[in-house]
Nucleic acid binder design. Structure first.
Lengths: 124, 124
DNA sequence: CCCCGTTGTCTGTTTTTCAGACATGTGCTA
DNA sequence: TAGCACATGTCTGAAAAACAGACAACGGGG
């Protein structure tokens, strides 16, 4: 995790937010830093520093903590849980579900064609 | 990211899976490694190695890529296996997301055609 | 006050990542 | 086929981050 820019000493605000959430979640389920550390196979000090935003958190570490703390990773990252799927996309997905396997193949080919065509238009 | 145990040289299977998903997602939105690298403020080689599972992915990096690739982080971690959609349907849904509104209309029309055709075949 | 469980912080060592270049692969065009 | 352009894979010394372990500090009971 050398994500924070080179000449930047101050704490990364986003990392601090992430750490707070990790800490909140841990305390909510009543787990000590040591137990969390054992779960993650890291030193306890690592947990302490992660929660303070002084140390990076690996994506897989976060996933593992998500299990231990019983929360989705999106809760830690603060993502909006909304799926953001336009209605026409949803409609297509539903329609596709009704089709036979052959027809799905045809449709997929056509979709692929449209996709490559739009690429060509963009590039040229 | 020294998450993998000390005396373990082989690739971390979970990291490899994560990398594959990152790569798939990037390719679906038609972005190059270089563009992704610019977005993350890392070298392109970092993207290459992340996708190969040879390099750790920070939690905040993953969140940033989630925005760029238009997926929830849970998709990268593999948390969202709840949907149970057949793979070809899922693929179509993803491809559709790439298309312009016009192309979606075309595709929807074609899907509708296929659906009605199969109905006719059933009834006759 | 003292104990004890828990958490915060420090330092030298180890591991990972960076930075940049070089190498490979793939598609296109003459 | 050769040549080229673009995207991606991979290597190496330098720099940064994480580890490992210890010590300090906080806080609640006895």
């Amino acid at each position: 995790m050398a994500r924070t820019p080179v000449g930047f000493a101050g704490p990364n605000p986003e990392a601090v937010r992430l750490g707070k959430r990790l800490k909140d979640a841990r305390e909510y389920v009543g787990i000590t830093q040591e137990e969390a550390a054992n779960h993650l196979k890291v030193r306890r000090s690592a947990i302490s520093e992660m929660e303070a935003g002084k140390r990076g958190v690996g994506a897989l570490e976060m996933k593992s903590l998500a299990v231990l703390y019983e929360r989705p990773t999106s809760w830690f990252t603060g993502e909006s849980e909304q799926l953001h799927v336009p209605e026409d996309v949803a409609f297509l997905a539903r329609t596709v579900s009704d089709l036979s396997e052959n027809d799905r193949g045809e449709l997929a080919s056509f979709a692929e064609f449209l996709r490559s065509r739009s690429k060509v238009n963009k590039n040229g």
